[in-house]
Simulated scan of single mutants.
Amino acid sequence: MKNIKRKILITAVLSLSLMACTPAQNKSNKVSKDQIVQVVNFDNQRKIDELVQTGIYYYWNGGDLKKVEQEFFKGITLKGKYDVVENSFKEASNLDPYRLDLRFSIASTQVIQGKIAEALETYKGILNIEPNNFDANILFAAYSRINGDTLSYDNTLKFLSTIEPEKTAKYVASFERTENFLKTDIKTDAYKVKTPNHTIVTLGYALANDGTMRPTLIKRLDQTLAMAKLNPNSTIIVSGGVPKQGVTEGHLMKEWLVENGIDASRVFIDDKAKDTVGNAVYSTEIMKKLNTKNVTLISSASHIRRGLSVYKEVSVRENLDINFDNLVYLDYDSVEEAMKVSSKEYMVVYRDTLRGSGLWNYPGIQR
């Protein structure tokens, strides 16, 4: 029985890998027959599943680095939770080198750590196996641009425009929108809105360990309250779903607004989101039901460019025509200081906007 399964798997791997070797592929990049004939031991699947689950657990929660070193990564010194995540997917990929989702997950974790050059090499490895893979190409293009390699960016987009012109054009438009949002004039004073179907969307902030709101979140709510009073016909969405002591950010945010005079019927809660992309995904679902056409997004100044870019990307992906404006809690010494975009923020804005487009960090595993 084992021999039969082995033969079936060899045939499947050969077929899929040979399909990936297109005529347009450079000879230097072709995968050899010896590389193609790699049989994944069925017993390894359990190990792969364990490694993937370990990686995702540490992504969200962290944990005991010494324990995971002993159990999974003997001989590797781990410096932080993302080392665990990256090495989990590397070990899993070593067991099944042709599972591209594992390689994408390695690259995503490298990006999270700011290791852009390493992520680009990981994407090259994917393209060595599957040269026409759109997701790997567009991610390679985006992070090449972030890394200052405009030649690779231009050449990759030129190649993609020959095989997926419409899809490529959508991403070019997305990159242009992102660049515009990075130049956004931030607003620090509440204002009256003249456009119809207006919604105020306020982004949450991690609660303290005792389940209370931190000062940053209260400052965002102060701006929400000012905006809500000036625009009594506007609906309000409060977004934040990470629970502490049995309560979520969204729940406490609505409670605070109601206690400060806002009619509860105006306030809608998203209490599922765990990060900015989740904020955008879940509150966009609420905006669909509200028929929202115009949004004032409220967050901290240090976070607003990312929020605007991600929300717009999610709305475009959902085929919604929504205009986005902003109001911020100024967490800088001045507006001039807040307008400066660091290289780290530049990378993070692109990273999360790409996720908002549907290119998830851990494809097939989680967003």
Rank of each mutant, 00 (worst) to 15 (best):
N294V: 08
N294F: 09
N294S: 11
N294E: 12
N294I: 10
V295A: 09
V295W: 15
V295S: 09
T296I: 07
T296F: 02
T296N: 07
T296D: 04
L297A: 10
L297Q: 05
L297T: 07
I298L: 03
I298P: 00
S299C: 07
S300T: 03
S300G: 06
S302F: 04
S302T: 09
H303W: 13
H303E: 09
H303P: 03
I304N: 06
I304W: 06
R305F: 05
R305S: 11
R306W: 06
R306Q: 13
R306E: 12
G307D: 11
G307R: 14
G307I: 15
G307Q: 11
G307P: 03
L308W: 13
S309E: 05
S309N: 09
S309H: 09
V310T: 14
V310E: 01
Y311V: 00
Y311A: 02
Y311Q: 01
K312I: 02
K312G: 08
K312M: 07
V314K: 04
V314E: 02
V314C: 04
S315W: 03
S315C: 12
V316G: 00
V316L: 10
V316T: 14
V316E: 11
V316Q: 10
R317Q: 11
R317E: 08
E318L: 13
E318V: 12
E318R: 14
N319V: 05
N319G: 13
N319W: 05
L320M: 15
L320G: 14
L320H: 09
D321R: 15
D321C: 10
N323R: 12
N323Q: 15
N323A: 15
F324R: 04
D325M: 07
N326I: 06
N326Q: 08
N326M: 08
N326E: 04
V328Q: 00
V328M: 02
V328A: 01
V328R: 01
Y329M: 12
Y329N: 14
Y329I: 14
L330M: 12
D331Q: 10
D331Y: 04
D331T: 07
D331M: 08
Y332C: 06
Y332L: 09
D333F: 02
S334M: 11
S334Y: 08
V335K: 13
V335M: 10
E336D: 14
E336S: 12
A338P: 02
A338F: 01
A338L: 01
A338R: 00
A338I: 00
M339Y: 00
M339I: 04
M339G: 10
K340G: 00
S342A: 13
S342M: 06
S343V: 03
K344Q: 11
K344S: 12
E345C: 02
Y346A: 05
Y346H: 15
M347K: 03
V348R: 08
V348H: 06
V349L: 05
V349R: 05
V349P: 03
Y350N: 15
Y350G: 01
Y350V: 12
R351C: 05
R351K: 11
R351E: 09
